[in-house]
Amino acid sequence: MKQYQLYTTMGAGFESVVAKELNTLGYETRTENGRVFFQGGQTDIVKTNLWLRTADRVKILLKEFKATDFDTLYNEVYELDWAALLPVDAKFPVQGRSVRSKLHSEPGIQSIVKKAIVNKMAQQYHRRGFLPESGNEYPLDVHLYKDTARISLDTTGASLFKRGYRIEHGGAPLKENFAASLLKLTPYDGSHPLIDPMTGSGTLAIEAALIAKNIAPGTWRKFAFDGFDWFDPKLHDVALAEAKSKEKALESPILASDIDQSILEIAKLNANNAGVLQDIDFKQVAVKDFTTDLKNGVIIANPPYGKRLKDKESVAELYHQMGTVFQKYPDFSQYYLVGDPDFEKEFGKRATKKRKLFNGNLRVDFYQYWANKK
Score class of each variant (00 low, 15 high):
E344R: 10
K47P: 05
I215S: 01
V142M: 09
N214M: 13
Q3W: 09
A351S: 14
Q39E: 14
K345E: 14
E247W: 13
G339H: 10
T24A: 10
A180Y: 02
E176W: 00
G323H: 14
G360A: 14
T352H: 13
L210V: 02
R150P: 15
Y188M: 00
E76M: 08
K234H: 10
W370S: 10
A351F: 10
T148I: 15
G96H: 04
K246G: 05
L240G: 13
A256R: 01
G202Y: 09
I254T: 03
I266G: 06
A216P: 00
P193D: 06
P303C: 08
H126F: 14
Q261C: 01
F228K: 04
V77K: 03
E346C: 09
A90M: 09
Q3E: 06
V287C: 04
D141P: 12
Y74W: 11
P330Q: 03
D237P: 01
P107Q: 12
D342M: 15
T29S: 05
A180H: 04
D342N: 15
A243C: 07
F343C: 08
N75K: 15
A271D: 12
I151D: 01
V338S: 04
F290S: 07
I266L: 15
G348V: 00
H320M: 14
Q95F: 13
V298I: 13
G218W: 00
I263C: 10
H126Y: 09
Q123K: 15
L25K: 03
A212C: 05
I299A: 06
D69M: 07
G157K: 06
E346T: 06
L194E: 02
T8N: 11
Q42R: 10
H192L: 06
Y335S: 03
